[in-house]
């Protein structure tokens, strides 16, 4: 029994000393800076983030020029983080007039990127939410109360302008405008990538334009038909007065570019690994 006791004591001392030798070696290695690749601390805010690999899933962006609004991503997305709307442009191609990606819902699984037939969806290598680098189309405020609140660039400018002044100096109207737009529950690093109309009025405008265009087209077609019928009926040589239906429809179509006025085309320069060292202002 005494031997067992002695053995226990000796073993305890030995194992503790061996453990302390191990940690001591760690300490010396660290002080000498030879900790090995696994333990080299990356001092992130001071040094740029080291993102490895080219399959990085930082966050999701859409290259609107290539998007054909086929809804393949929407179909395959498990969480429904897309909101999209399309219309045909002059070449009779589908273009996104609205394409929102709710980055607070997105789970960065990459299913949509794999599903996208035109490679317009892609994952950035950067993970920092820095709207400054994404153009003005990055809608970066959202929480559970503000799912559909969206801001356009002029609106953002107004927000910042008003924010620079003390609250007492604001007019009642400005204050109400601000209160309606700022959620009182906190700030937001999450964002929605979006393009397209930013207010219901703009959507209505675009819809109206589209309707008008359609009507004009129909009317032109009807007129052409009537003209042709009349011409066929009359068989009179009046070629100059017949406006070609195609010529009438095509110039009218591109009049409604999908983006809102004042906003540059979305996210083209966005996904580049532009934001390096400074994460936040």
């Amino acid at each position: 029994m005494i031997l067992a006791w002695i053995h226990d004591v000796v073993e305890a001392v030995q194992s503790c000393v061996s453990g302390m030798r191990t940690t001591g070696r760690f300490l010396v290695e660290n002080l000498r800076g030879e900790g090995g690749a696994m333990s080299a601390t990356r001092e992130y805010p001071e040094q740029p983030a080291e993102v490895v690999g080219d399959r990085q899933r930082g966050h999701l962006v859409n290259d609107a020029d290539r998007c054909i609004v086929c809804h393949a991503c929407d179909t395959v997305c498990p969480v429904d983080c897309f909101k999209m709307d399309g219309e045909r442009d002059g070449d009779n191609k589908m273009r996104a007039s609205r394409f929102d990606i709710d980055l607070s819902k997105c789970i960065y699984c990459g299913l949509c990127v794999r599903a996208c037939p035109t490679d317009s969806l892609s994952m950035t290598r950067t993970f920092e939410m820095d709207p400054q680098h994404e153009g003005k189309r990055f809608l970066f405020r959202r929480n559970s109360k503000q799912v559909d609140v969206r801001f356009d660039a002029p609106e953002m400018e107004r927000l910042h302008a008003l924010a620079a002044q003390p609250r007492e100096a604001l007019s009642a109207e400005d204050r109400a405008w601000l209160d309606a737009r700022i959620d009182d529950r906190g700030q937001h690093l999450i964002g929605i990538y979006g393009l397209g109309f930013f207010t219901p009025e703009q959507k209505a405008e675009a819809d109206a334009a589209r309707e008008a265009k359609k009507k004009a087209k129909d009317a032109a077609a009807a007129a052409a038909k009537a003209k042709a019928a009349a011409a066929a009926a009359a068989a009179a040589p009046k070629p100059a007065s017949v406006p070609a239906p195609a010529a009438g429809a095509t110039p009218a179509a591109p009049a409604a570019p999908p983006a809102a006025p004042g906003a540059p085309p979305a996210t083209k320069s966005g996904p580049d690994a532009a934001s390096g060292g400074s994460p936040t202002p």
Binding site: M129, F140, H160, P166, R167, L178, D184, Q187, P281
Partner: peptide, 21 residues
């Protein structure tokens, strides 16, 4: 000060502009 703060905004956005629940 529990005002919302925008990371990418200018220096001190929305200072004191917010109702605090």
């Amino acid at each position: 000060d529990r005002t919302p703060y925008i990371v990418a905004g200018p220096e001190a956005p929305f200072g004191g502009h917010c109702k605090v629940p």
